Amino acid sequence: MSVSPGGGRSPGDSASGRPFSFAITARSSGNRARCGRFHTPHGAVDTPCFMPVGTLATVKGITATQLEATGARMVLANTYHLHLQPGEGIVAEAGGLHRFMGWEGPLLTDSGGYQVFSLGDINRINDQGVTFRSPRDGRRIALTPERAMAIQMDLGADVAMAFDQCPPYPASEAEVAAACRRTHGWLERCIASHTRPDQALFGIVQGGCFPELRAESARVVTSMNLPGIAVGGVSVGEPAAEMHRILRQLGPLLPEEKPHYLMGVGSLPEMALAVSQGFDLFDCVLPTRLGRHGTALVGGERWNLRNARFRHDHQPLDASCPCAACRHHSRAYLHHLIRSQEMLGKILLSLHNITQLMRFTRAMAQAIREGCFAEDFAPWELESGAAHTW
């Protein structure tokens, strides 16, 4: 087997004989939900798929072996933060991000575009790019579309994201229009500077909560004919009803033959709605963030394990869950660990929460294949706390 510059399989090792391909393997009747298989140089990803977030080349507190046991197939890391520490040069020296973090499956790197939004108080934006003030040492960091591509090519993930501007919510229509114009111009520069054949480049649709801007952004980004397309600028503070409207609007506008990635969304109702509109890939810090704060996802509900009601509860969190927390420990033990501020409690709840999202996406895929997705998962489109069996 030949080796790519990032230390993984060569582009010709995918099942299609090309570095990247996407095939729809099952469809739902009555909506746009589908199952798919996205081939990458580091293996195939069956969709719908939730990607755990490993910002700094680690899903917090979890080893690669533990992560694989949750059913995770593809992991996300962050360009901006890895550029700050340890630096993309160190990662390249190690043979690429896969070898550096010990993860053999597919990887995706965000471009740093989200930090344009989340670190808005320490950056300056113009048409050339973004200048950040490093939160580590105060030095100035210039990130342009070309620089974002160079960093991601050094990191060597299977999928690189285009550099974009995600406007905050609320923002005026003029402000969002300017961000879209800049995002589209930056995408052209990303395409021109991205030269790594064993790495797919995805474009990002922006447009805030303005239907005409969303439609125009979808038209521009899809016209670039990239291997995949993402939707950004959601889950940034807008009302849930606005996000739902955006997903329903954009689903029919995205090219059916490409994988569709909804960025930053990991709540069950929103994922179910997005799948019904033809979305395939998701990521969110939610499962591990909740776990670190003592909260478990159980049957669509959030349980705070600090609560006294768990002190004498010797049942597993979820008897049907195969994770280490549910197989080996009780609610009372997890309550004890969280109240004692033991790191094991945070790790076990993080593993459990990731496993829950993996089970949820697999259940959606099974329902699509069996022709009952609309019947089994439609309630999730409307009720954020609906009791459900999956």
Rank of each mutant, 00 (worst) to 15 (best):
E238H: 10
Q341P: 03
G207T: 11
T47L: 08
S28P: 00
A26D: 15
R18F: 10
F117G: 02
R34V: 03
F100G: 00
R99Q: 13
S14E: 05
S193M: 07
H293I: 08
S111I: 07
R189T: 08
P259W: 02
A178K: 15
P255K: 06
S350N: 12
N307M: 02
H83T: 10
K258Y: 03
I151M: 14
G371F: 05
E146C: 11
A44R: 01
I338P: 00
R9C: 11
P239S: 11
H328N: 14
L253E: 08
L84W: 02
E173K: 13
R309M: 11
R359A: 12
G300C: 03
L82M: 15
R139W: 04
Q277N: 14
D13L: 13
K60N: 06
N307S: 06
P379E: 03
P239M: 09
M74L: 15
E370Y: 02
A64N: 07
L281G: 06
V91A: 07
L297I: 15
N353H: 10
H352N: 13
L290N: 13
L76S: 07
A378D: 09
P259F: 02
I246W: 00
G203F: 02
C323F: 00
L268P: 00
P316K: 10
L253F: 01
N126R: 10
V298W: 06
F20V: 08
I141H: 07
H98P: 08
A157M: 03
V231R: 13
R37H: 05
H329M: 09
R181P: 01
D110F: 10
E342H: 12
D198F: 02
E242F: 03
R362V: 01
H335R: 11
C49K: 06
A192S: 13
I338G: 06
L348A: 05
R289W: 01
G112T: 11
R189K: 05
R18G: 06
T361W: 00
R139I: 14
G385L: 12
A319N: 03
T195C: 08
Q356A: 14
R248I: 02
R182W: 08
V275T: 10
V275D: 03
R124N: 01
S320C: 04
A241E: 15
L67E: 02
G87Y: 09
R9Q: 14
W390A: 12
E370W: 01
V220Q: 15
P106D: 07
F38R: 02
R34N: 07
R136Y: 14
M263Y: 00
R73I: 10
T288S: 08
V59A: 05
T355Q: 13
L290E: 08
E342Q: 14
T131L: 12
P259R: 07
M51T: 02
F50M: 05
E256R: 14
E88V: 05
F210L: 11
F279C: 08
A44W: 00
S320H: 13
E212N: 15
M153T: 15
Q199N: 05
R37P: 02
G102M: 11
L67M: 04
A363Q: 07
L382N: 15
S14P: 03
L201Y: 04
T55A: 09
